[in-house]
Amino acid sequence: MRKIRVIIAKPGLDGHDRGAKVLARSLMEKGFDVIYAGIRQTPEDIVRAAIEEDVDVIGLSVLSGSHLYQFRRVASLMKQNKIDDVLLIGGGIIPESDKPKLAKIGVSAVFGPGSSIDEISNFINSKCRRLK
């Protein structure tokens, strides 16, 4: 059986990559196929990589406050490229009041500080199984 493929990327300019890196490595240890794209990725870079790597999940981490702009842009590029069946999740410093806005544009879940790896991997597993 094909492993679930996840791309973890940091859109925008912020370099706070601690969470993204720990998550990438932890998901790998849990048996996912993980592509870690790194920092300063444009939404275009991320969607292109997601298509090339044929991923099931896009995970975006933003700690600079620019999440609304970045997530919107990624979501709309996903739609344009007809990969909006790919699960889109996010993490970082994201205020509660922005979560409904993110949900509306297609972000399935936001994992803020203190989220456990199990919580995230269970979520991906349950969603991806349902997608298939």
């Binding site: 700690l63 620019s66 609304l68 702009y69």
Partner: peptide, 10 residues
């Protein structure tokens, strides 16, 4: 162009 969405945020 690269500053979009980031101005004044952090």
């Amino acid at each position: 162009e690269l500053s979009r969405g980031e101005f004044g945020m952090a």
